[in-house]
Amino acid sequence: MNRRTLPVAVTITACIALLLTGCSSGGNDDDESDKIKGSGGGGEDASAGSTARPDDAARPEIKLPESFRVDFAGWTNSDPELKTILDDGKDRLRAGYAAIIAGDPQDDALRFYSSGAALKSAPSWVKTYKGLTLKGSVRVFDPRVHVSNEGFGVLFYCVDEAEGYTRNLKTGKVAGTPKGDDPEVQYRTRLEKNSKGVWQTSTVQTSRGECGP
């Protein structure tokens, strides 16, 4: 996708050190991703609606058009809490896409799954796509999830944008990932559990070329 519009790269001023605070007792930066428990499992979960979670929250339904597909690979875990973090992190990403397509900076679902810095920055991020929509498909894979010693969640995952692009609603012009750029983006997110049991994304950091082979 086009680097200027960055449909899947929500850039928030958070650093990886903040995301990983309390996740491990030591080690250098190269070791951090290995300390985050992999989600395991396999299979593909298409961009279907939200599923039930083991808490009291009434989660909003998120709908994406057939013209833009989000496929999730391996987003499962046998641990109920880690599975909920994966599901809520998944729906936060889907809500972001839906907000862009709807052109709604105050999208209810995006706000529902956001807190802190991510909540404050979300409207400005959506506004950067004014006059644009999303087409094609993206693949979201290699989720790694962990609960820190302090109780917040850490979720890493990769998004392959190779088949996704933006389209200008007035001109019809399309733009994808610039030639020579890595189409895979790694997301590094921190999530906080609210009083209703929802894991809201509070910070997001993204980086191209970090997803590995």
Results as ranks from 00 to 15, higher is better:
Phe141Met: 11
Ala99Lys: 08
Arg111Trp: 00
Arg4Met: 08
Gly22Glu: 12
Asp107Trp: 13
Leu18Ile: 01
Glu44Ser: 14
Gln200Glu: 08
Gly180Pro: 02
Asp29Trp: 12
Ile36Asn: 08
Thr11Glu: 08
Asp142Ser: 10
Thr84Arg: 07
Thr76Cys: 14
Thr189Gln: 11
Arg144Glu: 08
Ser121Lys: 09
Thr128His: 03
Glu81Ile: 15
Ala9Ile: 01
Arg190Tyr: 00
Phe141Lys: 09
Tyr97Met: 14
Ser25Tyr: 12
Glu44Leu: 15
Arg167Ala: 12
Pro183His: 08
Cys158Trp: 05
Ala109Trp: 01
Gly131Arg: 10
Ser50Leu: 12
Arg3Glu: 07
Tyr187Phe: 07
Pro213Lys: 13
Ala52Glu: 13
Glu161Trp: 02
Val138Met: 06
Gly22Phe: 10
Lys90Asp: 09
Val159Phe: 03
Asn194Glu: 05
Pro105Asp: 08
Asn77His: 15
Asp30Pro: 05
Asp142Trp: 05
Ser137Cys: 04
Ser33Phe: 09
Asp79Ala: 11
Gln186Thr: 02
Gly131Ser: 02
Tyr157Gly: 02
Thr21Pro: 01
Ala57Pro: 02
Lys90Trp: 08
Ala102Ser: 14
Ser124Lys: 09
Asn28Gln: 15
Glu163Tyr: 00
Ser67Glu: 14
Leu64Phe: 02
Leu6Lys: 13
Gly212Leu: 03
Thr84Val: 11
Asp34Asn: 15
Ala175Ile: 04
Glu32Phe: 15
Ala73Met: 06
Val138Trp: 02
Cys211Ala: 04
Thr133Val: 08
Asp142Tyr: 06
Ala118Gly: 00
Gln200Asp: 05
Asp108Gly: 00
Lys170Ser: 10
Thr201Arg: 12
Val70Pro: 07
Ser114Pro: 07
Asp29Val: 15
Phe72Trp: 14
Thr203Leu: 04
Lys63Trp: 00
Asp56Ala: 11
Ser115Val: 05
Asp30Cys: 09
Asp181Thr: 07
Glu163Met: 08
Pro7His: 04
Ser148Asn: 02
Lys120Pro: 00
Asp108Ala: 10
Leu155Phe: 11
Trp199Cys: 13
Ile85Ala: 07
Gly89Lys: 02
Asp87Lys: 09
Pro143Cys: 07
Cys158Phe: 00
Glu44Ile: 15
Asp108His: 00
Asp29Phe: 14
Ala118Lys: 03
Lys173Arg: 11
Asp71Ile: 13
Lys35Ser: 15
Ser67Met: 11
Asp56Asn: 01
Pro60Gln: 03
Ser114Tyr: 06
Asp71Cys: 02
Asp34Gly: 15
Tyr157Gln: 04
Ser47Phe: 11
Lys63Asp: 03
Asp29His: 15
Thr76Phe: 12
Leu20Lys: 12
Leu110Glu: 01
Lys63Leu: 06
Thr206Pro: 04
Arg144Asp: 12
Glu44Trp: 12
Asn194Thr: 03
Leu110Gln: 08
Gly41Asp: 14
Ser137Gly: 05
Phe72Ile: 05
Thr189Asn: 14
Gly116Thr: 01
Ala122Val: 00
Ile16Gln: 14
Thr177Arg: 05
Ile36Trp: 06
Thr189Arg: 10
Gly26Glu: 12
Phe112Arg: 05
Ala102Asn: 10
Glu192Gly: 01
Ser124Phe: 06
Pro7Met: 06
Asp55Met: 04
Cys211Leu: 03
Arg188Val: 09
Ala98Trp: 13
Glu81Phe: 13
